Computed example of a mutant assay.
Amino acid sequence: MKFQIRHVQAIWPSGQYENWRLYCFADHASAQAFLDHFGGMMFDPKRDRDNGKARSVWRRTGEALRN
């Protein structure tokens, strides 16, 4: 299972932000296997980066998950 690691800044509508590490896989099955083993959440570049326009940013919705 080959992957790349990226760092992004997760930003919520409230203005709160955190630095997050993403594990990027070439195919959905590998990403799902990683998720099943380690937990976490899926990242969709088209949805979560303003259609790929926002680099190094993850536009989050709802409330921040951590304090």
Rank of each mutant, 00 (worst) to 15 (best):
Q4H: 11
Q4P: 02
Q4L: 10
Q4T: 01
Q4E: 08
I5F: 06
I5K: 12
I5C: 03
I5D: 06
I5H: 05
I5P: 00
R6S: 03
R6M: 01
R6P: 00
R6D: 04
R6I: 00
H7Y: 07
H7G: 00
H7E: 09
H7F: 04
V8D: 04
V8P: 01
V8M: 08
V8E: 05
V8A: 03
V8I: 08
V8C: 07
V8S: 06
Q9I: 11
Q9A: 08
Q9Y: 05
Q9N: 07
A10F: 06
A10E: 08
A10G: 03
I11W: 00
I11M: 03
W12N: 00
W12D: 00
W12Y: 08
W12K: 01
W12Q: 01
W12M: 02
P13A: 03
P13C: 01
S14H: 02
S14E: 09
S14C: 04
S14P: 03
S14F: 02
G15K: 05
G15P: 00
G15S: 04
Q16R: 14
Q16K: 11
Q16H: 10
Q16W: 10
Q16N: 12
Q16S: 11
Y17G: 02
Y17E: 05
Y17R: 08
E18V: 08
E18W: 02
E18C: 03
E18N: 05
W20S: 05
W20A: 06
W20Y: 13
R21E: 14
R21L: 05
R21W: 10
L22M: 10
L22H: 06
Y23K: 14
Y23H: 13
Y23P: 04
Y23G: 07
Y23Q: 10
C24E: 09
C24K: 13
C24L: 12
C24Q: 12
F25H: 09
F25P: 01
F25I: 02
D27S: 07
D27P: 04
D27F: 04
D27I: 00
H28C: 09
H28V: 05
H28P: 03
H28S: 10
A29C: 09
A29M: 11
A29E: 15
S30A: 13
S30W: 07
S30T: 04
S30V: 01
S30D: 15
S30K: 09
A31G: 13
Q32P: 04
Q32V: 09
Q32W: 14
A33E: 15
A33T: 13
A33F: 15
A33V: 09
F34A: 14
F34E: 14
F34T: 08
F34V: 06
F34R: 14
F34D: 14
F34M: 14
F34K: 12
L35Q: 11
L35E: 06
L35V: 07
L35P: 02
L35M: 13
L35G: 07
L35C: 11
D36L: 11
D36T: 08
H37T: 08
H37C: 09
H37V: 02
H37P: 01
F38D: 12
F38V: 06
F38E: 12
F38G: 08
F38I: 05
G39H: 10
G39E: 06
G39Y: 10
G39Q: 09
G40A: 09
G40W: 09
M41Q: 14
M41T: 15
M41H: 15
M42V: 10
M42L: 13
M42H: 12
M42A: 12
